[in-house]
């Protein structure tokens, strides 16, 4: 933990600001789901946009509400590592499902 641990927050206005970002993100996610991004770009574009917003919201929560911004490198690392391991689980599971029965390696 860093030395300025006790001062590790963004103050009252900062909290309200983060809160505002979260609320705007939620409302935007809700209404963006009605746009046909799947048709405009590629299947899954709607979900991708929603997930991007969710990631942004999560980053704000982790950094400011959970004070990771002021925390030690170890804490930052563990937060990143857990998502890295999730990514491993997703990626290596999907590399099976997405290559089944088609393409160069398909039966």
């Amino acid at each position: 933990m860093s030395d300025n641990h006790n001062e590790g927050h963004i103050g009252y206005p900062g909290y309200i600001g983060v809160f505002a970002v979260l609320v705007v993100g939620t409302i935007f996610t809700y209404f963006s789901s009605f746009w046909d991004l799947d048709g405009m770009f590629f299947p899954g574009a709607n979900t991708l946009l929603a997930l991007l917003i969710a990631f942004t919201k999560m980053t704000f929560v982790i950094l400011f509400f959970m004070h990771v911004y002021w925390n030690s490198k170890l804490i930052k690392l563990s937060a990143v590592a857990s998502f890295f391991w999730l990514a491993i689980m997703f990626a290596y599971t999907m590399q099976d499902y997405l290559t089944r029965g088609s393409g160069v390696f398909g039966q």
Binding site: W85, Y92, Q95, D96, T99, G101, F105, G106
Partner: peptide, 20 residues
């Protein structure tokens, strides 16, 4: 954490995944 699929070579997992 990157090798668990080697328990599943003959389970119906894709051949590409098996190679990786």
């Amino acid at each position: 954490f990157l090798v668990w699929g080697h328990h599943m070579f003959v389970s119906g997992q894709s051949i590409y995944a098996g190679l990786v």
